[in-house]
Design a protein around this nucleic acid. Structure first.
Lengths: 233, 233, 233, 233
DNA sequence: GATGAATGAGAATTCATTCAT
DNA sequence: GATGAATGAATTCTCATTCAT
């Protein structure tokens, strides 16, 4: 993925720097001049890499989402148990989030600014990703059939099972995505514990004490050793 | 400052309209011209009511937070049981959020744009509010002492009880605040059910089925009949 | 003069305060709001006293010039000796300047901003005043005839006696008027010595040492005891 | 900063044109739009050459002063006699003033509008320049020692020799600088005679008739043939 | 691949002024 | 006499973008 044509090292570096500028100042308060300053590339030189500021944002979000999705697919491969699948989803999401806080902040915070084609392409990925989680949650409750994703994508049925699944899905996303507003790696729990806390909360609630010997842990995936343009790997 | 009723009514109207413009386009993409258009007040006329665009944002956020805090205090008064207090907090937060979606979106989404004094004054209110929730959660787990708010406000102890409480607090906020990104009153569960869902999730987790006769319900407060400049009342 | 109809106490007070604001910030950088703030009169309330900002400047300059001219006439009355008349002119100009530094700064510095009728009325007074000095200087060199003022007012003769007289006149004005840029009553010579220094310089030059027993002094006029709205009297 | 000849030439041209606009309308009444119109450069294009209107004024004043100072140093080099040095100072000042009336008007008239660093940098140059004149005047009266510049720069001694020197210095500057308010090259004496008149007045006063064969003249400097971006050369 | 120079459009804000009360 | 509320016009400055080189 990191070596797909069109995503060469220089562009990737620009995307990363731009993401960090956007994360700090916000997309619309950040100017291309800021990005020129942060990257060291001249103002007009940047336009060789993207056609417009909006495309720059698109590229950041797209690349971020694509990586997230790819990894998720890899990690879920071959795992059938719904609870396991949920654990993998949450772990993947949180680890990636914390390792790539700036990009994920841009993804979460600047979700509505893209327009036209850029917007719909990102929306597609977002729906696919949310659908994946909805599918897992759906299986978790009624392990028999369906992917669950329809309930998130479509408006029907408006109030009932579908609406509850949709709610549960986004409530879980809320628990996770909101961390960009408060999580400080140096002050807060390490990601692994954050993951355990969130998972336990979601599955059993605060009133249920965690199992004395810790939550059931998944075997370590190969996630840690991966090389990546994403800083956290 | 100015407390004549005409001035107040007009200002409040401007705040509400501006909040809705900010909610739709985002604070920095929205221009004062947009607000002039939406309110029907001339561009320069607006500056009679606020000194700068940033102050306008501050006024919106401050008024929103102030109302939220006031109501919370009123509703919590005299209630001692931690779980009850938690239910009241969540109910208050969610009802207010859904009734004043635009202001709350501005409060949640544009949290970082304020600077200087404006920023710190809002931060104070925010810390007080988050501290209130942390205090409740603290009592919920260990009903004996302390308000819990120190753990959210201070960095100590960095990893341990404090960090877990902090995490739990913000995870709950995440569940609730994230709704501005997805909740659609016409499509999704009514607020009351949303409230039940979130509370149940937080207290008992997804794996525990809700009690067959519904969650324990609090006696209805007089919240519904209140008059207010906030649309939801 | 200070009690002419149209120049009542309140207006005079506004003129004085406005002059001080204009002196400090410059006419065009000062806003009517500044003057409202400095006077304590509301923005719109000021317009009862003058029709426009430009008229306000005109009133300040006109009143200042009128006082200057009136006093000059009074003091010169009955004095025939050219050198005495010159001493009186310089004394009058400098004392008034130092006593009313702010108004005189406005008069000197904002000479070109008035337009139309306002401008020409002030120009008339200025020409009369400069003509008076030119007349005195003319007599000083060739005590026989003419008032000398034509040479300053008209362009003819362009180069010769007239041009020299004009030059001498404005060079003397330069010596005096420039003080608004540097004179500090607490640091520099008292006005009486400033007056002596300038007069000696103009009459005898730096290379001629002053007479050992001081310059010839005029009998004290009644200038000092005069009451006036002008702070210095 | 940028020293490519094209950039420099263009900037210098902008400075000259802007100086003329500022001279005519006054710094604060002149808009960047006016300067855009006068230079033919687009409004925003101007900001490539300076960061703010205030910096534009600074650049004009700084360049003007720098040239003035450089020339003065060149011309004074090797001249020891105080009276000669004074003649050179006055000649340099007046010739430059008349040749660059617009810039010098901006320098004289808009002395107080600069703030912060811009202000203090110009003030430094101004103090150095005034100090140079004070030094010459000091030697002229008491040819033994000291530069005289301390008396202008410091407040001590507040009243006495220092204050008189300060006064004399600024009175001479007044004679010269005031010309921007009245001097018209087509109507008034040519610069050379203006120079003679002012010098004679300052040294010997009006009551001393000029020597029949003219004032002592310095040998012509090469000033006339100099090429310069300043129109007067 | 890269950049200096330039620009049109639009941003926030200020200002002198007005007018109903 | 005096003022609160309002406004049109103008101001400085920023921004995304372009294009010749």
């Amino acid at each position: 993925m990191d070596s797909r044509p069109g995503y060469d090292r220089k562009l990737l570096n620009i995307l990363r720097t731009a993401a960090s500028v956007f994360a700090e100042k916000g997309y619309s308060r950040a100017s291309i001049r800021d990005i020129s300053g942060a990257t060291g590339v001249s103002l007009s030189g940047l336009y060789y890499y993207f056609g417009s500021k909006e495309e720059l944002l698109y590229l950041i979000q797209d690349h971020c989402f694509a990586t997230l999705l790819t990894r998720l697919e890899e990690d879920l491969e071959g795992v059938a148990d719904p609870e396991c699948r949920l654990r993998i989803f949450v772990r993947n999401h949180l680890h990636f989030f914390v390792a790539n806080m700036e990009e994920m902040k841009v993804l979460s915070h600047e979700a509505e600014v893209l327009t036209g084609d850029f917007r719909s392409r990102i929306l597609d990925k977002k729906r696919a990703y949310a659908g994946a989680l909805a599918g897992i949650l759906s299986e978790l409750r009624e392990p028999e059939g369906g992917t669950g994703s329809e309930a998130v994508e479509n408006a029907l049925p408006p109030r009932g099972e579908g609406a509850t699944l949709r709610t549960t899905t986004f409530v879980l996303f809320g628990m996770m995505n909101w961390i960009y507003t408060w999580y400080d790696p140096e002050r807060d729990l390490p990601v692994e514990e954050l993951e355990q806390t969130i998972l336990h909360l979601f599955l059993h609630g605060v009133l249920t004490p965690p199992a004395p010997d810790g939550e059931v842990r998944l075997p370590e995936t190969s996630r840690m050793g991966r090389s990546s343009i994403w800083r956290g790997g």
